[in-house]
Design a protein around this nucleic acid. Structure first.
Ligand SMILES: NC(=O)c1ccc[n+]([C@@H]2O[C@H](COP(=O)([O-])OP(=O)(O)OC[C@H]3O[C@@H](n4cnc5c(N)ncnc54)[C@H](O)[C@@H]3O)[C@@H](O)[C@H]2O)c1
Ligand SMILES: NC(=O)c1ccc[n+]([C@@H]2O[C@H](COP(=O)([O-])OP(=O)(O)OC[C@H]3O[C@@H](n4cnc5c(N)ncnc54)[C@H](O)[C@@H]3O)[C@@H](O)[C@H]2O)c1
Lengths: 235, 235
DNA sequence: AAGAGTTTGTGAACGGGAGAACAAAATCGC
DNA sequence: GCGATTTTGTTCTCCCGTTCACAAACTCTT
């Protein structure tokens, strides 16, 4: 009873759709993609798992195992064809199509995000900027104009937005999230320091500067304590 | 042979310094801290692991196990004293002292970070803003003035900066990182989409918007495929 | 054509973290 | 004072992810 044999439906499908790619692997694929793009720009044609792994900052065994979930795209004794692998990873992640995003909360951070060129270059189109401050509505940011929060349903359905970015204060985050979900968004990237509750089918990822700093602080403290202990033991 | 008995040195130390707190736990402590602060502001005196866990968005068993690494700060049948636990977590993370940070690269993102109030409120002091663009040096951002990149050594040593934030383009990130480390920084928070190489004693954490979006895109694609398959099987 | 040299793909061992479950410890009611 | 109730702290089991190690598969040289 292999997983291929027990596939539901019985519809013939020899494509590699028997996917159960581990979440940890998914999170690394974009890193590999970036490394491949850099190699491609330097006109490198093939790369070994060792070279790729070093460019991506991971162990080569891990990289090979990660890639093996996608298929057997390498050639033993040779390595991986840079452009071919790049295309396969992009396709797997879903970057062969464009994705529309809407940014909610155009304050300090929202402005930076709206001006960020790295969005479009990776296939993410900013389809709308939304803020509930009447003083902000109408303001131009780059090519876009800030819309009222009430326009969110129209923006989401017109542009087929599936990803919402929340850059409002934490106190507004859950409300904004609910409205986004009601409008049809099914993925949320949250910059506000708040825990969001969403229906099962909605994915949420958070970016939390404050948590990152606190983790660094913890390790700094440990290093400092270790150094202090060392000094004490030498005294 | 308990871990307490085998502690190195033999120096009596009944404080709970037998720490080997799992990294996954460390990453959640700031979330608990935030939940506790919110409860404290609502004058809640005690909270059960169930209540805390729900506020933090985790499983209560996981929360209890996490807290047990710090010590036995709860009371069976009652719960946790909010303020007491808050202090203990803050102490464990190292937030009872202030930390100085320097931000390098004051462009779109750097400006947002420099203006961010959430820094100081959690005990992180921005000790300096640095940019290598001569046109930017001297510009005021909030209370601070942008310094030249050459001043970095002075800033780091004068303010005892241990944490550096990199918000430059990816192409400059490794150079900037090297300079930060040379100046004495031992923790780095990197916003640039680049893999950084550092000595062992330096901690690096990265915040990568593009990766987060790509992970969301992958799941969006899967959801879309699943829906398509469902429609096909019904047809 | 065959042997030497490379490098992939994967089986297997290992380690760490998640969650269920429960005994221990505290409070409360009477 | 004691049983009922609540809730913690911890043990145990399971699962996921990492890493090692090596056979299989490919190229290159002679
Ligand atoms: N600025 C940073 O560098 C930074 C860093 C990390 C995290 N954050 C977090 O990102 C979020 C935004 O930070 P910021 O500095 O840009 O804050 P900000 O106050 O500058 O901007 C918030 C914006 O959200 C808008 N807003 C408020 N409620 C809204 C609602 N219900 N609907 C739509 N828009 C609404 C406000 O009008 C404002 O324009 C905060 O949660 C903050 O904690 C910011
Ligand atoms: N803007 C965003 O919302 C956003 C989001 C995610 C990631 N990022 C990443 O953050 C980084 C900064 O983005 P940005 O939009 O602020 O870019 P930016 O071009 O607006 O700012 C970069 C700044 O870094 C300075 N700089 C360049 N080289 C330097 C050096 N060697 N030393 C010191 N300063 C130097 C430049 O003078 C400029 O002021 C980029 O790597 C970008 O990919 C930005």
């Amino acid at each position: 009873m292999t997983s291929a044999a027990s596939r539901k439906g019985g519809r013939a499908r020899d494509e590699r759709l028997e996917r159960d790619i581990p979440e940890a692997t998914i999170a690394r694929l974009p890193v590999y993609l970036r490394a491949l793009t850099a190699l491609s720009e330097r006109d490198v044609v093939t790369a070994s798992s060792e070279e790729l792994a070093s460019a991506a900052g991971v162990n080569s065994a891990k990289l090979r195992k990660d890639l093996s979930y996608l298929g057997t795209y390498g050639t033993r004794g040779v390595g991986y064809d840079v452009n071919y692998l790049r295309y396969q990873i992009a396709r797997e992640i879903g970057l062969t199509q464009d994705w529309s995003v809407v940014i909610v909360g155009i304050g300090n951070l929202g402005h930076a995000l709206a001006n960020y060129a790295g969005f479009a270059s990776r296939g993410f189109q900013v389809a709308g900027l939304v803020d509930n401050d009447p003083a902000r509505v109408g303001e131009k940011v780059g090519d876009l104009t800030i819309s009222s929060f009430d326009d969110i349903d129209a923006i989401v359905s017109n542009a087929a937005v599936s990803i919402g970015v929340i850059a409002t204060p934490a106190s507004a985050a859950q409300d904004v999230c609910d409205r986004l979900v009601a409008a049809g968004v099914s993925s949320v990237l949250n910059f506000a320091p708040a825990v969001l509750t969403v229906p099962d089918y909605v994915d949420v990822r958070k970016v939390d500067l404050s948590i990152e700093l606190q983790i660094l602080a913890y390790h700094e403290q440990r290093k400092a304590n270790g150094a202090a202990e060392l000094r004490a033991s030498l005294a």
